[in-house]
Design a protein around this nucleic acid. Sequence first.
DNA 1: AGATACTTGACTATTTTAGTCAGGTTTATA
DNA 2: TATAAACCTGACTAAAATAGTCAAGTATCT
Lengths: 141, 141
Amino acid sequence: MKLTSKGRYAVMALVDLARFNNINPVSLRDISLRQGISLDYLEQIFSKLRKKEIVQSVRGTQGGYVLNKKAKEIKLTNIFDAVDEKVKTVQCKKDSKKGCNGKATKCLTHNLWDELENHINNFFDEKSLEDLVKDNFERRV
Amino acid sequence: MKLTSKGRYAVMALVDLARFNNINPVSLRDISLRQGISLDYLEQIFSKLRKKEIVQSVRGTQGGYVLNKKAKEIKLTNIFDAVDEKVKTVQCKKDSKKGCNGKATKCLTHNLWDELENHINNFFDEKSLEDLVKDNFERRV
DNA sequence: AGATACTTGACTATTTTAGTCAGGTTTATA
DNA sequence: TATAAACCTGACTAAAATAGTCAAGTATCT
Ligand code: FES
Ligand code: FES
């Protein structure tokens, strides 16, 4: 049970971006250098973030990316959703009536994993980008 | 972020086992048939559970496995620990002072992942095998 | 003796992850 | 208007992790 680096990087890059709070576009090159993430990989990630309207791109010289919403309104859930980082605890298809073992009923542990999934998602629903930026600011002070 | 089938099967098998509540040893063959898990794979899993003293083995004809503690005392944490299903959200080494990017300080998201890890582990610490058995019994009534 | 069931360790196909690479297009600005 | 900075896209791949299988035992009850 572990987090992929795609999800990790997405959040890391957005926290970096959010600190500039829409004053100027931030280039991926800068993020790449500051956070130590491969530029090519960042491009993949930001392409997805843009499609889900979490960031906006500004082309040309001095271009880069800007948040498309207020940091307070961007929840971890939104970010993870954008980069396809999903929490998957059950094995079966959720909407199907069949269990993970191919049997007609759900397995002995289905409810448990479902509860776990909710538990984790609650955490993601509550945390916003703003929280993360604040948390980091306070740490430095 | 997903659960491995090793962890999933371990819990599933133990719930199956716990329902017999130490009356008779339960053979892996039976669990295999009832739960649709490969026998060879179950053997790997139970070997680990035995080493961590979660189950006891009974050899010979009519042998099998029995819980080594009360179902109430076996938490999900113990089970996951036994089969090496660990929650890993941070990238860096926890005890090191270095960050995941190789820099001298922890990255912008380190605290967040650490919180997440605690959040998930709390869930595992609270749930016992007894809870799971009860939950399943109630569902059937 | 024979059957049942545990025990161990090595091996492997498949899948997922974490990127890289190549070849674009767009646009600010000098 | 030339140029360079920066975005954009899709295909490709090495490495790691996962989810098992397979083979060859050993112990113990009846
Ligand atoms: S996880 Fe849904 S039926 Fe087993
Ligand atoms: S996760 Fe610990 S420093 Fe990045």
